[in-house]
C-alpha cells in the first residue's frame, strides 16, 4: 500500500503536524513493504526538504502552480488526486487541521475513498483495514474499518511524537494539470495571529478560567506560560465576556487541544471544557474548591488560591529553567 502524505509549511517552516503525518505514513508504508511519498504544494526550503526526509519520506513531490496559491480546497484536492494517481498511492494521509478539514473530504468524495477524520492510532491490517478515532467528546474511541480500495486518514495532531532518522528523500518537481479549472474564491485579506505560539501546535498550555476574576489578573498566567514556553488558553465564559481573545477558548465549542502538559487554573472542569482538553497527556489542576470536578480528570492537583500559588510556580519554574541553561 503505497502511502502519500499531504504536507505544508507555516510561517516559512514545515509544520510539526506534517512531520507527524510523514512519520505516521512511513510507519504504514513499512507495515506493507512500500514507501512513503510526501506532497508539498508551494515553496519549501532546503531545511524543510531535509526534515521531510528525516521524518521518513523516501520521495517528495513538490508542486508549484500559480493556481494553487489561492489555497482553494477544490484545486488542492485535484492536485492531490493527480499525485496519488502518479504514485499509485492507496493510502493518503492528511493532518486533521484547517487544511486537512477542507481538502480531505473533497478528495474522499472525488476518488470515492473512505475517510476516517481525526485518527489517533496506526491502522490494523488484520481482517481488513481499520483505524481508531476519538468519539463522544473523548469519552470513547471507535475503531473504523475502511472498505474502499483507496483510503484517506486525517491524523489528529499531537497524537504521536515525531521521530527523526538519517533518511534522505529524493526531491521531484511534480507538474499538475489544472487546465479548465478556475478558483471562484477570491482571497481579500489574510490576518495572521500575532501570538508566537499557536495553541493547537503547542506542547505546553497554561489555561485559566473565571476563577481569575478579571483580565487584569492574567499577568501571572502569562508569566507562567512565558517561563515554561507554553501557549495560553482559557475557558469559554472568559472568552465570551471578552477577558481573553476568542482563539484561546478551548473545549467542545472552541479549540480541541492535546498538549503534553495542560495546566488549568481557576477552571471548574465542566464536561464541555474537558471535551477539548482531555486528550492532554498530563493535566494539572489548580482550584480553591477541593470538590471541583476537574480534579477527577487531573494527574496533579493543588487545592488552593491561584493568586498565591501561581506566582510561586513562576518563581520555581524560573529556578528550574536557570538550572537547565
Amino acid at each position: 500500500m503505497a502511502v502519500l502524505i499531504y504536507t505544508e509549511t507555516a510561517k516559512g517552516k514545515i509544520k510539526k503536524s506534517s512531520l507527524e503525518a510523514v512519520n505516521y505514513g512511513n510507519h504504514i508504508a513499512s507495515m506493507t513493504n512500500t514507501t512513503a511519498t510526501a506532497l508539498i504544494i508551494g515553496d519549501a526550503s532546503n531545511d524543510d526538504i531535509i526534515a521531510l526526509g528525516k521524518a521518513g519520506a523516501k520521495k517528495i513531490l513538490q508542486v508549484k502552480n500559480d493556481k494553487l496559491t489561492s489555497q482553494d480546497p477544490q484545486l488542492l484536492a485535484i492536485a492531490t488526486e493527480q499525485a496519488a494517481t502518479a504514485e499509485n498511492s492507496e493510502v493518503i494521509i492528511f493532518s486533521h487541521d484547517f487544511t486537512g478539514k477542507a481538502v480531505a473530504p473533497r478528495l474522499s468524495a472525488r476518488i470515492k475513498a473512505g475517510l476516517v477524520a481525526g485518527a489517533v492510532s496506526y491502522p490494523v491490517l488484520e481482517g481488513g483495514f481499520s483505524v481508531k478515532k476519538n468519539v463522544f467528546s473523548g469519552k470513547a474511541t471507535a475503531e473504523y474499518s475502511i472498505s474502499s480500495a483507496k483510503k484517506i486518514i486525517s491524523l489528529l495532531p499531537n497524537s504521536f511524537p515525531v521521530t527523526l532518522t538519517e533518511n534522505t528523500a529524493e526531491l521531484v518537481n511534480f507538474a499538475v494539470n489544472l487546465d479548465g479549472v478556475e478558483s471562484r474564491i477570491k482571497v481579500k485579506e489574510v490576518k495572521k495571529e500575532t501570538a508566537e505560539l499557536s495553541l493547537p501546535d503547542a506542547d505546553l498550555v497554561v489555561s485559566a478560567g473565571r476563577g481569575m476574576r478579571g483580565p487584569e489578573n492574567w499577568g501571572m498566567i502569562e508569566d507562567l506560560a512565558k517561563v515554561l514556553g507554553a501557549a495560553t488558553a482559557c475557558s469559554r465564559p472568559v472568552a465570551d465576556i471578552g477577558w481573553r481573545p476568542h482563539h484561546e477558548h478551548v473545549g467542545q465549542t472552541g479549540v480541541a487541544i492535546r498538549p503534553n502538559l495542560y495546566i488549568a487554573i481557576g477552571i471548574s472542569g465542566a464536561i464541555q471544557h474537558l471535551a477539548g482538553v482531555n486528550g492532554s497527556k498530563t493535566i494539572v489542576v489548580i482550584n480553591k474548591d477541593a470538590e471541583a470536578p476537574f480534579f477527577k480528570s487531573a494527574d496533579y492537583g493543588i487545592v488552593g488560591d491561584a493568586f498565591e500559588i501561581v506566582p510561586k510556580l513562576v518563581e520555581a519554574a524560573k529556578k528550574l529553567k536557570a538550572q537547565q541553561n
Binding site: 482571497v187 485579506e189 489574510v190 495571529e193 499557536s198
Partner: peptide, 9 residues
C-alpha cells in the same frame, strides 16, 4: 485558517 483568519469573496 492555519494561524489566523482570512476574508474571502
Amino acid at each position: 485558517i492555519d494561524g489566523g483568519t482570512q476574508v474571502v469573496e
